[in-house]
């Protein structure tokens, strides 16, 4: 086994409980989204008043691309069950652990004193973290498809239609992982990388909320372009997919930039003994 594969395998082993728990939650939330949609569809059938109220509420939940289709209904619910939150927690946890976390607990010495380049080490961290993210999205995707079949939803979403929002959420997680990895690459303690990653993510979420609110849009609309949440649009990815490519491309670009800059920092930095 190559050093790269050994390190990826070690990372997957080390995170298996966290990954398992998050993936289980993903599966549950994917299933819950379909179940809630089924109940919602039955509810709106009851009378016109319900229908009007529900449409307004669901449009609010699903954003401007919401078209009241079953697919849009199911994907819109991912925002409120905490699907993105799980992805972000994984991204920040893995990004901050990659360098400063290993350095802090003293295990970086084990790997970096062996004949392994810093690029190989960093890539093993990136690949294992993104593999975990991929696995989560796969579980979310499969749970949605299975739940649709289980409940016998009439207007059943296509596999591709559900896959696109999964890819969009993956890209969001990857972008957050990218910049958290960057902070991790030059720090010696994990908490600071984790704090910086979280702070930027939370600030981005608040900035995006302000920038897209009708009351502030005109003055603060530019804030939208400073956050990764500008590219987060799972409902749009599911129903229209016009912005799907640019959104995923931009988020993956943030991820790639984070990784490249992280490598440049990591390559040139000292690796002191843990203190």
């Amino acid at each position: 086994m190559t050093a790269f594969m050994a390190l990826v395998r070690k990372q997957m082993m080390e995170t298996r409980w966290f990954l398992g728990l998050v993936s289980l939650a993903m599966g549950g939330l994917g299933w819950l989204g379909v179940y809630q949609t089924m109940r919602y569809l039955a509810w709106v059938q009851e009378d016109q008043a319900n229908r009007m109220m529900a449409r307004g509420m669901m449009r609010f939940m699903g954003g401007p691309s919401f078209d009241n289709s079953v697919l849009a209904l199911e994907i819109a619910r991912w925002n409120f069950p905490v699907v993105p939150l799980l992805v972000l927690s994984w991204a920040i946890a893995r990004g901050s652990a990659a360098v400063s976390g290993e350095l802090e607990r003293g295990t970086l010495d084990l790997a970096m004193s062996r004949p392994m380049s810093r690029w190989t080490y960093l890539m093993a961290q990136v690949v294992s973290s993104l593999l975990g993210l991929t696995f989560m999205m796969l579980v979310l995707w499969l749970s949605n498809l299975l739940a649709n079949r289980f409940y016998g939803i009439e207007e059943m979403p296509s596999a591709l239609g559900v896959l696109r929002p999964c890819v969009n959420i993956f890209a969001l997680g990857a972008s957050v992982f990218g910049y958290t990895l960057l902070f991790s690459s030059f720090d010696v303690v994990r908490w600071r990388a984790s704090l910086l990653g979280s702070a930027i993510t939370i600030a981005g979420l608040v900035g995006y909320s302000v920038a897209t609110a009708d009351e502030f849009k005109e003055r603060w609309g530019w804030l939208e372009w400073l956050t990764v949440f500008r590219g987060y649009a799972p409902v749009e990815a599911a129903v229209k997919a016009e912005q799907f490519g640019p959104n995923v491309g931009a988020l993956c670009g943030v991820c790639a930039a984070g990784i490249i800059i992280a490598y440049l920092f990591f390559q040139g930095r000292d690796l002191p003994a843990n203190s």
């Binding site: 080390e14 607990r105 003293g106 084990l110 004193s113 062996r114 392994m116």
Partner: peptide, 20 residues
């Protein structure tokens, strides 16, 4: 990298993976 190919190092403050 070339140096570490010919060197084996035992750190003073040793940390191993407990779950292995």
């Amino acid at each position: 990298l070339a140096v570490r190919r010919v060197v084996s190092y035992l750190p003073g403050e040793l940390r191993l993976y407990g779950y292995m």
